[in-house]
Design a protein around this nucleic acid. Sequence first.
RNA 1: GGAGAGGUGGCAGAGUGGCCGAAUGCACCGGUCUUGAAAACCGGCGUCGUGUAACAGCGACCGGGGGUUCGAAUCCCCCCCUCUCCGCCA
Length: 426
Amino acid sequence: MLDLQYICDNLEPVAENCRNRGVEVDLDSIVALRGRRSELITSGDELRREQKATSSQIPTAESDEAKQVLIARGRELREQLQGLDGELAEVEADLRSGQSCIPNMTHPDAPIALGDDGHVELRRWGDVPEFDFEPRDHVAISEAHNLIDFEAGSRVAGHGFYFLKNEAVLLELALMQLAVTRLREADFTLMTTPDLAKDEIIEGIGFLPRGPESQIYSIENSELSLVATAEITLGGAFKDQVLEIDDLPLRCAGISHCFRTEAGAHGRATRGIYRVHQFTKVEMFGFTAPTLEASNAFHNEVVEIEEGLFQALEIPYRVVDTCTGDLGGPAYRKFDLEAWMPGRGDGGDWGEVTSASNCTDYQSRRLGIRCRTPGKKGTEFVHTLNGTAVATSRALIALLENHQRADGTIHIPEALRPWIGSDQIG
RNA sequence: GGAGAGGUGGCAGAGUGGCCGAAUGCACCGGUCUUGAAAACCGGCGUCGUGUAACAGCGACCGGGGGUUCGAAUCCCCCCCUCUCCGCCA
């Protein structure tokens, strides 16, 4: 959520930003609602002041008649106030829902475009493997080595669910171990997190928990939903807290399951574990001082960690600067890592494996996460950032497909061996 | 899941209808004193909204929401959370 004052003071830049991001908003109605809100607050305050003055005279009223007059006046004031408060509640609800539709402002260097093709590749690492045999995709590979059971997944939970088996299990655990070990070295506080969260928290982070388009599974007859990422729980962990600026940046690394309905994804490439309803993830989350210097620096650090991990996995990747149309609501800038996946598309393709966003104060404003600076009055909203350390399902795809050999065995990168106990599968 | 107790400022802890945005203590900040520190003494010490050039002023906030009343931290209803005991359980 953007600051209301900011929106009204910067109508044209905000409108332009919305156009760049492909979001339609009615800024005029927001301005009008804000004006009405101010009027209601001002007259409400005035009524309350008079109400206080009136009722404080009652105990010392000279006569019973005088007292009755004051009581009648007080009753009248209360009724007026109830009317005002009712309207105020409506206006604020409308204002808030309008305000929530406005996306975050955008980093000046982010590419401006609406479609996928607007992304800008910043750099590449590693060489795309050239096979002197016909490479298999991860589905075929896991069939050969008995690594993933899709049929059992379907029987138990339906399409989009799966069982990992044998070395795939070890690989998933090893990926998490590697990520967690490195994040601990980088001074992140490790945490496991709830896999459910209140809708209020989910909205604060910027997801829509209910409704036909929702990517989120919600629990019937409750305010809870299954999380789509630990970003939700890690950000929500500090809801309504005031942090000391000297304690920032706060680095958290959360392990969680991620649940996604993938509504509207039917018909898209659905083979294998690229797009599934449940996967496991190690997520980074940061709270920084409320300056772009601080959060941009942290953003770069997050991407560096992600790159370090994929380098350790010996997987070729490219870093992509996400264009305005694909930033979503909360992100100010987003860098994705796309790993090379030889089995994807026709002859291999890049596939998103991580995503790192600087959300500036967009999430913290709605969640009420602030910081205090000694000697400075008041508090400010912190900046929040999130990034995938490793999403095990997609990392697994890249791992299996890039490291397959002509004889059918799969090379295991050095970095994972401590947890696998072997240098190859098969 | 059942029974009880409780949620008040950074913390502790008063406050059962008006004089309460809230005693007191601790912590914290500034000052006096001191060679320095401690102690003592004096003063300050919340957040949000509105407003101001900046002060001031005004309003809201005693777990959350609703209600009663001229007036609610205080009375009533619903919800959440914490603690103790019992049951169940990895």
